[in-house]
Simulated assay, not measured.
Amino acid sequence: MTSSLQPGQILARGTCRHLRDLGYACVTELVPARGLRVDVMALGRKGEIWVIECKSSRADFQTDHKWQGYLEWCDRYFWAVDQDFDTDLLPTETGLIIADGFDAEIIRTGPQTKLPAARRSALTRKFARHAAARLQRLTDPDAGAIFHP
């Protein structure tokens, strides 16, 4: 049910579904470094890491002053927006995904910038710990008070 989700969460859900179909594992709201929280991080079969920021409105995009800080935490960077979003606002040197609550489509793939090996390794471990902790909280809600990734 999409009615209980915020607009950005709806975009993230459709984006994650599409990326899953492409062979990526996704987590939402991952913190790669203090002061940053990405909407969606996707991990590919070969270890490639994509960051996707979901923007539900012009105001949401215009108030995001941290997005360039995410570029050093991924191999590719994308915006996910709905079909009514004015995509002319988005930087053309980034990827573009059009999404809704059920699916998405990659319209433009941004440039690839390979992560340094040490950062990729650390980020992959953080991704795994984040995903495992979230799964544990779903299966054992009381565990959240005990374990912090």
Rank of each mutant, 00 (worst) to 15 (best):
T92W: 04
A33I: 00
G69E: 09
D82E: 12
G14Q: 03
T2V: 04
Q112S: 11
Y77Q: 01
F127Y: 09
G14R: 02
G14L: 02
Y24R: 00
G101S: 13
L19E: 05
L43S: 05
I49E: 03
Y24A: 01
Q112E: 14
L11E: 13
E93S: 15
G23D: 01
E29Y: 10
W73E: 06
D100K: 02
P32K: 00
I106R: 03
V40M: 04
R58Q: 14
Y77I: 02
T87Q: 10
C74L: 10
A117S: 11
Q6A: 15
A128S: 10
R34E: 15
H18R: 07
W73Q: 08
P116E: 05
G101L: 08
D64K: 06
R34Y: 14
R45P: 14
R125P: 12
Q62R: 03
S57E: 13
D64S: 11
I10Q: 11
V51I: 14
M41E: 07
Q68S: 09
T28K: 12
L36D: 08
A104W: 05
L36K: 01
D64L: 05
T113I: 09
L90C: 03
A122E: 03
R13Y: 07
R108Q: 15
H65N: 05
A80L: 04
L30N: 04
P116F: 01
G101Y: 07
I10G: 07
A80Y: 11
D103H: 15
P7E: 08
G95E: 14
R125L: 15
D100A: 08
Q62I: 00
E72I: 03
V38E: 13
R120S: 08
L22W: 00
